[in-house]
Amino acid sequence: MSIFNRHCVALQILIIVFALLSSGCAPIPRPTGAESAVRPFTIGAIPDQDPEKLQRLYGKLADYLSAELGVPVVYKPVTDYTASVTAFSIGDLDMVWFGGLTGVQARLQTPGAEAIVQRDIDANFHSVFIANVASGLTPFEDISGLTQLKGHTFTFGSESSTSGRLMPQYFLSLAGVKLEDFKGELGFSGSHDATIKLVEAGAYEAGALNEQVWNSRVASGEVDTEKVIVLWRTPAYYDYHWVIRKDVEERFGEGFIGRVRDAFLKLDANVPEHKEILDLFGAERFIPTESANYAQIEAVAREIGKIK
């Protein structure tokens, strides 16, 4: 039985592996665990732009809020729109910078959550339809011009983007263009920047995106305007806003939501540190908003099937 004996040592090693494994499975102290004294005020954002910029932006904001509110604030990055809604609704995130649609979805899944503030531009937001010049598409003034897009390839941004999908799809349907009218498979590029690049490369002849992102990319010379042109600018609608969970008041005290709102409203373009944050957000200032402002978005979302 020599083989048997030789293998016994190997077996012992195996047992040690599992012993270690099972001990490893015992609860390990976790900085964010429920048992630790106060879980920091955790903020997040839908990943609609260059993540590195988001990291910089929200890092600064977290520092500012922490100083204003006197509680620890951390920013937790999320990779996709859906995940940010889920993370908010299960309480991993206390306050999130949502788009119009994701904000509605999040509030529907999270009783008591409410929209509190948004940028000055968000109350009057636009999308743009863009096209590769090689497609032969030309700019138009009236919504009916969207029918031009029939028979061309087309991409949205993320599935859950308000400015990159929901509202463009809504205006397309108003103009009588169905999603099946496009040539080939309809695209979802994943982000506004990707939409620009894919249309610029000609992978899709046309696309729709957030006007603010478009303007900032054009201003910084990142778009080849010889190749990509704006076809049409949509009418205005409400978009991005901060949504906060109700239970933060249990952790940080009564009136906390109000203090958060005030901290945003206090941001002043004349104060250099404030201006930096406002610039990163692409805003002059923040303004109060309320959940009711998003009734139109909700209606459109239900019509399109984004909300059941």
């Binding site: 993540p51 910029k53 920047d193």
Partner: peptide, 20 residues
């Protein structure tokens, strides 16, 4: 990582989407 679990997949997707 691509669906948000973090690590190399996550960073890869981010860098590709932001064209870095």
């Amino acid at each position: 990582g691509l669906i948000g679990a973090g690590g190399l997949g996550y960073e890869l997707l981010l860098s590709l989407q932001s064209l870095r």
